[in-house]
Amino acid sequence: MTHAPGAQIVEIIKNNQKDLVGDLLATMKKKVIRLDKSAENEIIIQATQLLGFLEIAIPQGQLSDLETRAWDDTRQLLSDFSQTRAKEGFSPIETATFIFSFKEPLFTLLRTSLSNNPQLLAEEIAVTSLLFDELGLLTISSYQKAREQIILRQQQELLELSTPVVQLWQNILALPLIGTLDSARTQVVMENLLQKIVETGALIAIIDITGVPTVDTLVAQHLLKTIAAARLMGADCIISGIRPQIAQTIVHLGVNLEDVITKATLADAFVVALKTTGSSVTNS
């Protein structure tokens, strides 16, 4: 008897779709804690879809290579599934359980239908096991990718959120820095500041470092770079918000801030900036 690997599985999937989905749900309920009614329905829909795709893909595709065209639909489905899972905050185990939970019921069905042909049974189980392992890996990798995308997006948002440039007065900008200054942030800070200088035609920018927890040589270097770039655009910089400890560290590190106007508070810096630009504020 000639026999294509996986043929038996297709047969089983075709005939027992309902049962398989039911079993899957039962297994998942055992392993996954969070499963409300809507999540259940979603799983039923996705499982049915997946079984449908498998039914088509197994006979025409290579079982060992999921990169082939025959598996396009399956891959798409699984990557969508893992992405939504990742966004909803499921753990990777919970996500992969969806695939691995198919194994048990499938094996049981295989055993009953091939009980008189142990040779074929072993082959089928091996093939099925391999296939579902591959699918599981695929799920995990898409899950990981989705997670990384989320992290990347959050990083970017943080980057933009934490570097506002505000106009305090005519010709005066303020740049309140919060958090540590690394190279990537310095780049964003610099670009934002220079852009704003062009837009507003500011003469003075006050860089307030009250929110910068520590100033090491690298941070100081980045600050000096920003100041140099602003100077090239014709704007002077004042550093304000230097806490006592930071003043001590700066001196201990031997960082040269001689050429930069430094002030203890933003208010002091603002007064200097007003004087330099020729504006004044009086109490009425």
């Binding site: 610099m190 220079l194 200088i197 770039a229 014709g234």
Partner: peptide, 26 residues
């Protein structure tokens, strides 16, 4: 005068801060 932001960043990265040169926005 009139240095573009991107140019200013490049010069600073190159370590050329044009010491001794006065600069203005326009």
């Amino acid at each position: 005068v009139g240095m573009q932001p991107a140019v200013a960043i490049t010069l600073v990265e190159l370590g050329l801060t044009l010491e001794g040169v006065i600069t203005a926005l326009n």
